[in-house]
Every structure is written in C-alpha cells, then in structure tokens.
Design a protein around this nucleic acid. Structure first.
Lengths: 237, 237
DNA sequence: CGACGCTTTGACTATACTCAACCCGTGTGG
DNA sequence: CCACACGGGTTGAGTATAGTCAAAGCGTCG
C-alpha cells in the first residue's frame, strides 16, 4: 500500500521516501484510496530529533500530530507531587500528540527521543481538514482512541487494585505475547523505566523479579532477557 | 436547539418528547443542523431501567451507545483479581458503551442503574452511519474521547503516584469546583463508592477524612456534607 | 422494632517506599 | 592500560502507608 496502481510513484517528486514510509506505517492510514494517501503525504512534514531531545513537554501548546517513523520516544507524565511516570514507549508506527488536538490544546505529558528519531508531523488544522473530508479516516482514529482509552482504563484499574507482583507478572506475559515462538523475552526498556511504567521503584521491581524466579515462574537470563517458565501460572497471579 | 425554526415541531409525530430531550442533552449533538438532528432522533430508541438493573456487563457483546436522559448509572470494572472499582457515575447527558463501538466489541465494564433511569440507545451500525455522513459529529465525538482519555490517564497517574490523602484532597477540591458559591460540598455518592472510586477502602477513606479535619482543612458537617475550609491548602497536598 | 447496609474505630499485618551501601558494566581520559 | 566516574541494578534495614479483620454505632426502611 505504499504505492498506487493508478499512479506512477514518480508523480510525487517532492515527497522523499521517508514520508511515504512514515504515512504507510500508521495503522489508521492503512487501506486508503490513492488520492487520500497523496493528500495526507502532502501535509506531513518530516522532522528528526537526536537522542535526549525534547519533542514536546507539559505546558507546551499542542498543534501537531507526531508519527514515529524511526527511533523510540518516551512519553512520561509528572504527577502533581512531582514524580515521573513512564506512560508508554513509542515505536515506529505509533503516534503522539493526538490528545490535545481536539480538546485541550496544552500538553500534560513529555515526549523525549530516546535515540536518533525521525517523526512525521501533521499540523492540527490540516489533520482536522483531512478528518472532515474523509470520514473513514476519522472512524479509524476513533477506533484507535477507543483502544487507547480501554488500555488506559485497564492500566488504571490494575495499578489501583493489583500488587506489584501481579502487575509485573501480567506485564511479562503481555510481552511474551500470544506468539509463543520462544519463551525467552527481551525487555524493551531498562528496569528503571519498567519500574516507572509499572508505577513502582527499581528496588521493588528487582525484589519481585527475584521472588518470581524463586517461585519458579521465570528464569533471569541476563540483564534484559528473561525466560518465562510458567506463563499460565503468571497469568493467574 | 431542541426545536428547528424551519420545521414545525409537529412534523415528527412519531418522536416523543423524551427522545428529543435525550438527544439535545448530549454535548456532542449540540449545535446541529435540523436535518442532522432529525436523523439522529430517528435512530434513537428510549429504554428505561429500574433501580439495580444491569444495563450491560463484562463479557456482553456491545452493540449500542447509551445516552443517559434521566437517572444515574454506575460504571464499574472488575480487576483481574476480582476487586470492583467504580470508574465513573453517569448523569443525564453522559453516555456509555462508546468504547466497544469501534474496536473490541466486548464490554469489559459493568453499567448498573442506581435508580430509575431512562436512556436513549443508538445501534452501533446506525451510529457509524451518522458519523460517516456527518464528519462534524465525528469530530465532536473525537473531542469527547480525547477528553476522556486525558482524564483517564490523569486518574491512572494519580492512583499510581499519589497517596490516598492527596487523592482525596484533590477530589474534594474538584467537587467544590471553580464556582466557589459555597464552601459546603455534598458528596455525589456514598463514602463506600467514593472509596472505590479513589481506589481505596471505606476504612482508609474514613480515617483520611478525619485526618484532614484534624489538620483543619475541612469540617465534616454530616454524612454527605463537608465544609471546605482551606481549598488552597488541600490543593498543594 | 428489627434487619440491613453504610460508617467508624481499633488492632494487626503486609506491601511497598526510602535511604544507604555496594556491585557491575561501560565509556572516558590520563 | 589502568583509573575513574557514571548510571543502572541489587541488597539490606527501617519505616510508613494502607489493607484486613472484627466489632460496634448509626440511619433508614419495611
């Protein structure tokens, strides 16, 4: 879907490969008509950030959607009491900044590039134009929002009611995924970040991992690698 | 906006007053053209629930949007470990069931009428038709989702990082609202439910309320009434 | 009145945070 | 090449916040 059969790819001489890749990566832009795809690519602007650079931060006025085409982005939030929590990691194909596009236009979170990262941006007004023009895209965005909302509510409920051990256990199974190709998983972030994501401290995380190993559920291979010995056991914690 | 100037209200003899009221109550349906409003009313179906009745529950297949026109609905969620958490109370004008309309179509939460409650339902397919036909409505729904998502992420972060005392303090100030007409607030639910909403237990809630009173921030008037003595002090907890 | 559910209080427990020390792997500079 | 600093990770000891269990007070509704 990165090329159209009715148009030669050369008809967009002003668009470099990055933009095409970026747009085609995003789930909500899949299965689009040629003309829609062209129009979207016309309004995207590629930007790159180097490691540690801030893409936006709390208090910033929000006016763009950011679509990750390469690299990794940390989305964090500062609680009222000043503690930082990692909300999610953005990988290629994910997007950020969508929240404030519609209601409040002030960011409440922080987006920081964890490595050399390139994103495609779409300005809020242009994005809204597209949504108004192509309701089917709006529907896909709605579906995406709805999924995010569900995840967020589930996450809130988990933190509220489950112990760190349980949260951790469920997280490990999630990373393992349904594709049980291998029982060895690789953590996608440092344990420090994982602790923040699970709303706990590095110390507690370390202890709970040891506990799970002592109980025979997992086997700690190396810093980032963990062998899941008993997925079902972990799930029903 | 409950009546159109270009059409006599009598031209919808099949629509009773309840449906008109129900539709006009919902923020996302405000400021609509006549024909849009008519079309929406055509596809809404009024249903009433008596106290304690289940509107939907986890596991149910979701196929309708529910708009509260009268009464009160509890939206709860069961954590993996079986604890119930109150997610929100729906008052007239709020809606439920919107989550599963787009992505997963299985409910993960419970909606129970707390009193005699009447809702208007719109079937998912008909709702989607309307969104596709009137992108401006889709935009309003997006704005609403975006607001909800923001609230949900804020709530998740709070539960994760703030103490019960802090959460409670902030909640009280929220109820007080910006309109400082009176410093006496009335809790919109029982303390048991409030405990569940704040992700704590009734016992702890009771103790923290006493603490706040002992510290001079509030004054407990009666079961549901609380006088806020120092809103600013509460906020900076 | 009596039953029921909400609320409060007390005593105990447990989970998880804090603080501090130490270990380890990596990258830097002498 | 080694010394060192740095950040992440682990371990230990002490503390605190909040959950559990139990009992009793209170309000409301048949």
């Amino acid at each position: 879907m990165t090329h159209c059969t009715t148009h030669d790819h050369q008809t967009h001489p002003d668009l470099d490969h990055d933009e095409t890749a970026c747009v085609s990566l995003v789930p909500i832009f899949n299965h689009l008509e040629c003309d829609q795809m062209e129009e979207i690519m016309r309004v995207t602007h590629p930007v790159t950030f180097s490691k540690g650079q801030t893409i936006y931060q709390a208090g910033d006025r929000s006016d763009s959607l950011y679509i990750v085409s390469e690299g990794k982005i940390r989305i964090t939030r500062m609680s009222e009491s000043g503690k930082e929590q990692l909300l999610r990691l953005l990988l290629p194909g994910h997007f950020a900044g969508e929240l404030s596009l519609f209601s409040e236009s002030i960011h409440e979170d922080y987006a920081i590039a964890m490595e050399q990262t390139s994103v495609c941006t779409i300005h809020r007004t242009e994005f809204q134009d597209i949504l108004l023009k192509y309701p089917s895209i709006a529907m896909k965005v709605l579906a995406e929002f709805s999924k995010r909302l569900e995840q967020s509510e589930r996450q809130a409920a988990r933190v509220a009611t489950e112990s760190v051990e349980t949260r951790l256990a469920h997280y490990l199974v999630e990373v393992l995924g349904t594709a049980h190709t291998s029982l060895v998983i690789e953590l996608p972030m440092t344990k420090k970040d994982l602790a923040s994501y699970l709303a706990t401290t590095p110390e507690t995380l370390s202890r709970r991992l040891s506990d799970l190993e002592a109980q025979g559920f997992i086997r700690l291979i190396s810093n980032r690698k963990i062998k899941i010995l008993d997925p079902d056991g972990l799930m029903q914690l």
